[in-house]
């Protein structure tokens, strides 16, 4: 198991983010058990595992989205650039700006396409109109949706197709210039063609961002990720290069899951 090797040097600068002995509770239920792993810059890490294994919960710990659940509790630590994000002194609002998120179902605001992307800039105090316009355009281009929407930026975002909505949500996340992008099964609600577009997009984006993606689709994990981590029953079973995980898993559970024996 190569997890302990990773955890030994989790303060090393090569990890953009890392977690150490992370436990997570919903009330009395322990949803995550002692999770330790690191994420490198400019790499895509896929979190896989059967439903309920804790992969989404873990993802939501990384930008403290679970804070919104009143009965939840976290033990252990998660670091971003070497700093523990669960220290009381950490400003969670700033953290979430650095660690952006794309959700399972596309969730555009009931506003215009332009306003959706500009929202993150506005709430962070940017009022310079020209700058906002440039930023919106750049983000939409990066999310590979600019050509489809450039003529109707003032139309409501709810009129877009599901795949377009999800790319808009990615553009929205990119507009605030995050360093890490979390994606929670971003293609699970989409058709194959839209899924393919999202996957291509992830491939392009990894040049600039640290991307962590939760997926229940193993082919997708194999296609888009550099590193894959397998979760089962709230534990990190195994993590390593995607190639080696899929060709030579070291744990029996991983092999069973990958070969489709359960999950």
């Amino acid at each position: 198991m190569n997890v302990p090797e990773q955890s030994k040097n989790d303060d090393s600068p090569e990890y953009k983010m890392s977690s150490e002995d992370l436990d997570f509770y919903y009330g009395d239920f322990k949803a995550l058990n002692n999770v330790t792993m690191g994420f490198k810059s400019c790499e895509v890490t896929a979190l896989i595992g059967p439903s309920g294994c804790g992969k989404s919960t873990f993802l939501r710990c990384l930008n403290r989205m679970n804070d919104l659940i009143p009965i939840s509790r976290v033990d252990g630590k998660i670091t971003l650039d070497g700093e523990n994000i669960y220290l009381p002194s950490v400003d969670v609002v700033m953290l979430r700006r650095k660690v952006g998120m794309v959700f399972q179902k596309p969730n555009p605001f009931p506003k215009s396409i332009f306003d959706n992307v500009a929202y993150g800039l506005w709430v962070n105090g940017i009022k310079d109109k020209a700058f906002v316009r440039d930023c919106v355009e750049e983000s939409l281009k990066r999310a590979a949706i600019w050509d489809e929407v450039k003529d109707r930026l003032q139309d409501t975002a709810l009129g877009l197709s599901g795949g377009q909505q999800q790319r808009l949500c990615i553009a929205r996340a990119l507009a605030v210039k995050p360093e890490v992008v979390l994606m929670d099964e971003p293609a699970s609600a989409l058709d194959p063609i839209a899924t393919q577009k999202i996957e291509e997009l992830i491939h392009q984006l990894k040049e600039m961002y640290t991307i962590i993606i939760v997926t229940h689709n193993m082919q997708q994990a194999a296609r888009v990720s550099d590193v894959t981590a397998f979760f089962y029953l709230g534990k990190l079973i195994e993590a390593g290069d995607t190639d080696s995980i899929f060709t030579r898993p070291t744990k029996k559970q991983t092999e069973d899951y990958i070969t489709g024996r359960f999950g």
């Binding site: 962070n124 105090g125 940017i126 310079d128 700058f131 210039k177």
Partner: peptide
């Protein structure tokens, strides 16, 4: 990506304090 505009997005403590 133009570099001078990038700085506009940097953390602005005064604004952050105001909104809090």
């Amino acid at each position: 990506m133009p570099v001078d505009e990038e700085s506009l997005l940097e953390f602005n403590p005064a604004y952050d304090k105001r909104r809090k």
